[in-house]
C-alpha cells in the first residue's frame, strides 16, 4: 500500500523533472542565442502571448469552431457506426458481403476529400464536420463490429436457450463485450477527429485553430503561433484524458494495454 504510494510519488516527481528540464532547455537555448530569435520566440513572450489569446475574440471563436465541429462530427460518426456496425456485426452474411467495401474505403486518407468537401460545402460548418464524419467512422465501425463479433457464441446460445429477453441479452451479454472495444475506437477517433478538423481549417480556410495558426504564420506573428500550437496540444491531451476517464468509469473491468506506459 505504502510502497505503491511512494512509487507513484517518485513517478510523478520524475515526470515533473522531465517537464522542468524541457523548459530549461528552451530558456538556455534562448539565452545562449543558439536559435534565431525572430523564429524562436522566448519562453516569456510565448507565455504572455498564450495568456493574451484568451482575451482575443477571434481566438475564442476559432476555438469554439474547432471544438464544435469535432464534437458534432464525432457524434454523427458514432451514431452511424453503431447503426451500421450492429447490423454488420450480428449477421455473418452481412459481414462477409461488406468487409471488402470497408477494407477498400478505410485506407482512403480522409484529407484527400478536403477539395471535394470544399466544393460541396465551401468554408461552412459542414466542410470540416463532413470530413471528420468520413474519417472517424472507420475506426469506430471496425471496433463496434469487433465488439459484437467478440460476444461468446456459447453464452449467446445459452441466453437463447434460457429465453432471456432481448433487453437482458443486450444489457448483460452484448454491451459488456462491445463497450471496451467501442471505448478504444472512440479514443482513436477522438484524436483523429481533432487532426482532421485542424487540417480542414488549415488547408480549406474555414474558421478554427488550424486557420488561426496559418494566419499568424503568414503575418510572421511567431509568439502567438507557438502559443496556439501549444494550446492545441493541450486540447489533444484533454481529449485523451477525457476518453481515458470515461473508459475507466464505463468499463472499469477493461484494462487497456495500449499506451499504458505513458
Amino acid at each position: 500500500m505504502t510502497s505503491t504510494y511512494i512509487k507513484k510519488r517518485i513517478r510523478a516527481t520524475t515526470s515533473f523533472a522531465g517537464i522542468v528540464i524541457a523548459l530549461l532547455v528552451w530558456v538556455i537555448a534562448e539565452d545562449a542565442r543558439l536559435l534565431p530569435r525572430s523564429e524562436f520566440p522566448s519562453l516569456s513572450s510565448t507565455a504572455s502571448a498564450f495568456l493574451a489569446q484568451f482575451q482575443s475574440a477571434s481566438f475564442v471563436s476559432a476555438l469554439a469552431a474547432t471544438l464544435s465541429t469535432w464534437a458534432v462530427g464525432l457524434a454523427v460518426a458514432l451514431a452511424i457506426s453503431l447503426l451500421i456496425g450492429s447490423f454488420l456485426g450480428s449477421s455473418a452474411r452481412a459481414f462477409r458481403s461488406s468487409w471488402l467495401i470497408v477494407e477498400f474505403l478505410k485506407p482512403i486518407p480522409p484529407v484527400a476529400l478536403i477539395p471535394l468537401a470544399l466544393l460541396l460545402y465551401g468554408t461552412s460548418f459542414w466542410m470540416p464536420t463532413g470530413l471528420i464524419i468520413f474519417g472517424t467512422v472507420w475506426p469506430l465501425l471496425v471496433h463496434v463490429i469487433a465488439g459484437i463479433r467478440g460476444v461468446d457464441p456459447v453464452a449467446l446460445d445459452s441466453s437463447r436457450a434460457y429465453r432471456l429477453t432481448r433487453r437482458h441479452t443486450l444489457r448483460y451479454l452484448i454491451l459488456p463485450s462491445v463497450l471496451p472495444s467501442l471505448m478504444t475506437g472512440l479514443r482513436i477517433a477522438g484524436s483523429l477527429g481533432l487532426a482532421i478538423a485542424v487540417t480542414a481549417e488549415l488547408i480549406g480556410g474555414s474558421t478554427g485553430l488550424g486557420n488561426f495558426v496559418a494566419l499568424d504564420e503568414s503575418a510572421s506573428k511567431y509568439a502567438p503561433m507557438y502559443a496556439v500550437i501549444i494550446f492545441t496540444g493541450l486540447i489533444g491531451i484533454a481529449i485523451n484524458s477525457l476518453f481515458k476517464f470515461l473508459s475507466r468509469k464505463i468499463v472499469p473491468w477493461h484494462h487497456e494495454r495500449f499506451g499504458a506506459s505513458l
Partner: peptide, 14 residues
Amino acid sequence: HFLRAIPPPILLPL
C-alpha cells in the same frame, strides 16, 4: 504525451 497530442498538420506552418 504532449508532442503526440499536437495534431501534426498544425505544425506545418511552423
